[in-house]
Write a protein that binds this DNA or RNA. Structure first.
Lengths: 230, 230, 230, 230
DNA sequence: GATGAATGAGGGTTCATTCAT
DNA sequence: TATGAATGAACCCTCATTCAT
């Protein structure tokens, strides 16, 4: 939309902007589908309906294009995460909703995960080189912190919870399920991506998070801080 | 070891067996390092100290080699998981230990995760084609079930827990942390792989799992089965 | 020639067209020289004075290139065959001339035969896959039919002659001599490709065809239709 | 048979001889099927049921093996040609029978032709290097000469016929039909290898040869020795 | 900005042949 | 003799990238 607004001012650049979007879109698909190394510039150009050469005109290199794809993907994730309306006055239900909503994003957009996975195999090569990406701090973090604070205030959540670990756990519980579906299905020989199974999984994730936060069973765990490592 | 024993009897086959091992070892490294598409057969041959075409003599193709690498990796994971001695008489501590032990495997062998990730990007192409891999059912599952049963018998664990979801969650909480370390570090701008941070994470994982299982806070969650989807 | 005319208008495409021609020419030589399997893409690129991968840019694969070479060869053969001016009013002399002319093509362009031979060893793999080649119907066939008709009208040729068998025979008598020159020379220990020997052969071929067609000795062969097979 | 006789004397070598036969047989198939360059030593070893290495033990190289295959093929052809019983007292019928019999060999053993073709593409490389092959002079030549002589004596055949050209023509008329069946079928879009079509062809060949030889139409062709070349 | 042609390096795979046993 | 492992050269083909227009 900003794109259209900007283009209203400079009519000349419309096609350029559209071309850029088309490339990003095609590239996102290709990179998500095959990973960085498996993706082909030819395929991206073909899908975008442009000449291979234009890719280089706009993005300079495969790495450059991949970086832009990552940025736009992060933006989409952030945008998606910001969308779900959380009721912060009911921390328990709010948290459940939060976990559920985040999980849904992965199930609906597994291509996001594949992009992140690919980038992690490359050891964060592009993310670390880019100056823009680190700013993409997630608003989700704010939601988590707010819910956590409200829960503690209302004496339903424990105090000692690290929001970063919680953030990672919330993401992990659903994301890993999605991103490793094929190997898990290989092991368990059962379909993991049917609609009911997905709902079951999301409920499980929400339950796990909420039960982790609740104060009620604190008494049982006194003294148990660290497990002795082998 | 059996290899060496056998070779003591028939000197002939030593080199063959060693060659195979050398290739698998070099290939595991290369595939884990670069992913399937990024890995180079030349590099594997070089690392294994053999001619490139010997790879094809033993494994027929890159796909074939990758499949064998996956199999051997699964075996190593299974072997690692089986190693940790769990005290089944104390379900709570046993489960804590279990989660911790499994987590440690990922931290100590992140290459396993990279292999699985790469395979998942390929949509389980090799795992599904292989007839051997699905049999690599994890003994870890048995440990989880046994602990769960004992916990229920002793009235400390809840009854309604699905062992498969639990298995996936236990794996997810630590594995996703490891496999997405680079993008997480990009977002949080903090080191996630230092020794104390890792211990903290593992403790968090164990806590999360145990608190999910305990009966004590059941009363608080009555009626909350499913979260209404958006 | 049209190529040059066209290029006069649009300078841009000259190199492209030339490149294509250069490749076809180099490939024709290489394939004729060594057969399909013996031919080397490297060698073709070298001979055409281009990069190896340009071959693939233009023709996609070795098979694709070979198919185009076959097409262009068929066109050249057809063109060569169409060139000789036959006197249709004198069927006997016309036929003699026809046989002689066709034969000359093989002697002058043995590479055509080697290409066809190679394709036949491959069981017509490319010819059958190509949609263009079957249209390359020979105008030679028309000449044969016309001569045959005129000869019958003038009562010098017999009526019962099958033009397809005649076509094949005319081709065989000279083509097989050329294409099997090396094994024949091995057997007969005599030079078969000297100028006088070639002329002698071509005369022989023409004689054979004409005598086959003449009505005069029909009486002698009455009743002899089929030979009893062994 | 000689093989068995020889082996009776030296029992030890039976397996060797059998191995040799097996290899020749497998190699003949492979070379005829794919041509020299298309043939694979692995495939031959596999088909012969032996180790790849043994091929080299027996035949030293691919070229060596191919040469032996050619020799044995020539012997088979000669043997086949010698088999048909010709009635020399009736030159016309005898010649018809001869042409027919020779043709049948090609139809029944197209692999012979493919071997010869392949060798001709290689410009008789092996045949010329071998000291044995030139001796394989065909007894067929003797039959042709004898028939020719008898025909002349009986005043049914012309005198001026060159037996070598006749030999080549007899072979060409049927051999070329077989060896170029795929390209001919591509051009004519009709099946050439059905049983009735083959019989028709063979009859055509015999007719052509006989009519060429008969004296009866000599008067019509007086003075026509050479066609003026273009 | 956009196009088609070209580049150079290398990527997986194959093959005839030989070595060690 | 026969076997399995290994060799080295090359083969077809692909890919990211750039040039000339």
């Amino acid at each position: 939309m900003d794109v259209l607004a900007a283009s209203a001012l400079k009519k000349v650049r419309v096609s350029t902007l559209l071309t850029r979007e088309k490339i990003i879109s095609a590239a996102t698909y290709e990179f998500a589908e095959k990973g960085y190394d498996g993706a082909r510039m030819d395929e991206i150009a073909l899908r975008a309906g442009i000449q291979k050469n234009v890719l280089y005109y706009y993005f300079k290199s495969k790495d450059g294009l991949y970086t832009e794809v990552l940025i736009s993907t992060y933006e989409l994730i952030r945008f998606s995460q910001a969308e779900s309306k959380i009721n912060f006055d009911d921390p328990v239900e709010g948290m459940r909703k939060l976990v559920y909503s985040i999980g849904k994003i992965w199930f609906e957009h597994p291509e996001f995960l594949r992009l992140l996975q690919s980038e992690n195999i490359l050891r964060g090569r592009h993310i670390k080189a880019s100056r823009k990406i680190p700013d993409l701090y997630s608003p989700l973090m704010d939601s988590i912190k707010k819910l956590l604070r409200n829960g503690v205030d209302k004496k339903v959540f424990r105090k000692e919870v690290d929001p970063i670990d919680l953030y990672i756990s919330i993401t992990s519980l659903s994301a890993h399920y999605v991103s490793h579906q094929h190997t898990f299905e290989g092991i368990f020989k059962s379909k993991l991506m049917t609609s009911p199974r997905i709902r079951k999984r999301l409920t499980h994730c929400a339950e796990m998070v909420v039960r982790y936060l609740l104060v009620s069973n604190d008494s049982l765990n006194k003294g148990a801080k660290h497990v002795s490592s082998k």
